[in-house]
Design a protein around this nucleic acid. Structure first.
Lengths: 70, 70
DNA sequence: CAATAGTCGGGTAATTAGGGAC
DNA sequence: GGTGTCCTAATTACCCGACTAT
């Protein structure tokens, strides 16, 4: 017995997507998505191995962003 | 710096999470998380049976290394 | 003890990162 | 300046069966 685990472990489940997914959503090459991440234009998380993962929420927002760049 | 470090009365409770949880947080497969641990990329504890447990603090730190929404 | 879910271990195909050039 | 394609090396995802933990 070692299961006191209350049960509130995952409040925000960030759905992360791969560069390939983002590339398909934006209609660009996966390498371009990686360039965005490296340039700091696209926020996301990085795995300890250097791979990129992006939040679907952010991607969705950019996709639905019907405005001009400030 | 001057940190008297008051030595806590008893050791802090390390919140340990399973490979599956870490995998969900990073958007990768659980096996990948195990591979990180075996490669020494991800600090963690190992049970006598060979199962991995990671500190939520370490995972959180790696996740928070990158922000969101620019 | 029986059953379920999660994890481990190995193997293979697909994806990704990185560089460099057009 | 930004994007797509080439190549190589590294990493990852999914397959299986077996074990552990609850």
């Amino acid at each position: 017995m070692h299961t006191p685990e209350p049960e509130p472990p995952f409040p925000p489940l960030p759905e992360l997507v791969t560069p390939g997914e983002v590339a398909a959503l934006f209609g660009v090459d996966a390498k371009t998505v990686t360039r965005w991440a490296l340039s700091g234009r696209l926020p996301g998380v990085r795995t300890p191995s250097g791979h990129h993962r992006f939040r679907r929420h952010d991607i969705d927002r950019l996709l639905h962003q019907s405005g001009s760049t400030p």
